[in-house]
Design a protein around this nucleic acid. Structure first.
Lengths: 239, 239
DNA sequence: ACTTGTATGATTGTATACAAGTATTATAAG
DNA sequence: CTTATAATACTTGTATACAATCATACAAGT
């Protein structure tokens, strides 16, 4: 086992952010680890181990694990422990299928509500994306992509939809980064964002919905293809 | 304040069920209280108060509150506490809007996967519903309705969709009960279930999707009407 | 060999203790 | 009387202690 006890007692958690509780930070840390694949599906989360590694007591770790369960990222078996579920490739495809069905709804609703200021905000985000695309900074492009979509969820003025889509979007972030690294995908995606923004600015609900569905569909196709190539390479290496 | 300390020390929680932890039971208890409206939006959840009332320590209460936060039922403000969000009437309408967009997808997928045994299971549920409808047992009808829909989510073989829809369905359970009390709605809903089942049995994906969307749409219309009447009555009483 | 039983260690579940932050009230100054 | 400030009570955050449960290993009996 690689993970040894944190003897130096240095808390691995970002000690700077005092606005949130330890529980939340442990939750975010573990969520990130699971979504990024650092902690793998099937693995057991041992409270003591995690608390030593993170330099906190068991209490916040336990609370974080309970939160992960509600997010569907781990399964807790009473008196036995928590086993990581993570996001499989099937889950990935499934999530994009769901997004194809409801992300268009979010845009449709947003097109009905959006204000001048909100349009400006979205516009700025797309401009920035274009800038980073010219510099090939996939990480920044991904973050701005998140902001663009999250804003639309917010403008839909449907709290549950926002919550649901935000969760789904968050779950696939690891894969999305991969996606933008593909030649040409970033520019294509940004162009699609511009079109969606255009429809939103005109309050054209039908167009906004249709363009968004197409956007997600393209993202899905691109991503599944990337994954397929990725897997082939991995198999080659192994054998 | 009406709530006084549980001096008799009798745990209010179902002590029988030893398969789940206290945290889970407290979570379910609080969730039920929020969804049923016994605990109202805006109210503060005081850990000590709840632990005395439920006859447990603060630990499981805290864990339950963290879980509720992930479900979007409370908002935790660090160092201040948890405030109940609950399900507003707008949320209710919003949730049905979302269901209209993805519950059809679940049926479409289920129609592709469903087995003979699963068809039989659904068939039994609808038969039972018919029986209880003749006896006007709205509570049983509602429970069977839950089982019918949950089964379809399960048969969709899309874990995330199942998880998402299950959450949404669960959130509106309080209102659904109201809905079935309306004259004629139960029989109409059961007839719609039969039609959906028919489509599933034929593996007719298009029909299953279309019928389900219509079913949710009808349920939504019925429910919103009920609520409107309900509100009028309440306002009359008040003034 | 194969089961069964028991002891031991590891891990989770719950309760409690203490620390830190927040709200409330009382008190004093303007 | 109002405002500012200090004291107090209340509530949350975190750590730790103890209890209950589960897994493992080893021994005895069949």
């Amino acid at each position: 086992m690689m993970s040894m006890i944190n003897e130096s007692n240095t808390p691995k958690l970002a000690a700077s952010d005092n606005t949130s509780s330890l529980s939340s930070r442990v939750f975010e840390e573990l969520e990130e680890s699971i979504l990024s694949g650092r902690i793998k599906p099937g693995e057991n989360l041992i409270e003591m181990k995690l608390s030593s590694e993170l330099g906190v007591s068991r209490t916040p770790v336990r609370e974080a694990i309970r939160m992960l369960e509600q997010k569907g990222l781990v399964q807790i078996i009473p008196n036995k422990g928590a086993v990581v579920l993570g996001i499989s490739e099937k889950d990935l495809a499934d999530i994009y299928t769901i997004r194809m069905y409801i992300e268009g709804l979010a845009s449709r609703l947003a097109a009905g509500n959006i204000t001048e200021n909100q349009i400006r905000e979205l516009s700025e985000i797309v401009d920035l994306q274009e800038y980073y695309s010219s510099k090939h900074s996939t990480s920044q492009i991904k973050d701005l992509d998140s902001r663009f979509h999250e804003k639309i969820y917010e403008y839909s003025d449907n709290r549950t939809l926002q919550h649901t889509l935000s969760d789904l979007h968050h779950m696939v972030q690891r894969y999305r980064q991969l996606s933008f690294a593909a030649e040409g995908r970033a520019d294509k995606a940004i162009e699609e964002h511009r079109q969606i923004l255009q429809a939103l600015a005109c309050h054209d609900q039908d167009a906004a919905e249709k363009l968004t569905i197409q956007h997600i569909s393209n993202a899905k196709d691109n991503l599944l293809q990337i994954i397929k190539i990725h897997n082939l390479q991995n198999n080659d290496h192994k054998e």
